[in-house]
Design a protein around this nucleic acid. Structure first.
Length: 107
DNA sequence: TTAGTGACTGTAG
DNA sequence: GCTACAGCCACTA
């Protein structure tokens, strides 16, 4: 079995530390396809079917905007989960976004 | 099988 | 700074 694009995405996303965030492009680039950022979002959408929890709420677009919140059960879920981790969000926009941004490290 | 769609990003004007 | 377009891969109908 080879890890597909989705599996790689899940693996990277699960490495995001508590209270930190990352972006679709950063993850896609880490996997090897910077232009396939869309697929990262697609994978996260499917992540709800994964047995192991995937912190999809820690992944936002490059502006620090919660563009994926509408894919959660409730549109407040994503913000609430992030806030519970200490992330400050105002109108779907992550504050101190650049400081919280986490870059995947090569294992 | 083909066509359409999607939680995005980088480049160009 | 903004808008417009192309590229990327997988899934569904």
């Amino acid at each position: 079995m080879e890890a597909g694009f989705f599996d790689k995405v899940f693996d990277v996303v699960r490495q995001i530390p508590h209270g930190r965030i990352s972006t679709y492009g950063t993850i896609a680039k880490h996997i090897g396809s910077p232009k396939a950022a869309r697929m990262v979002g697609w994978a996260l959408n499917k992540s709800s079917t994964e047995k192991e929890f995937v912190p999809a709420h820690r992944v936002v677009n490059r502006k620090g905007l919660l563009t994926g919140k509408r894919h959660f059960a409730n549109q407040n879920t994503m913000r609430e989960m992030l806030e519970s981790e200490g992330v400050i969000i105002i109108e779907d926009q992550i504050q101190n976004f650049e400081e919280l941004l986490w870059y995947p490290s090569l294992n």
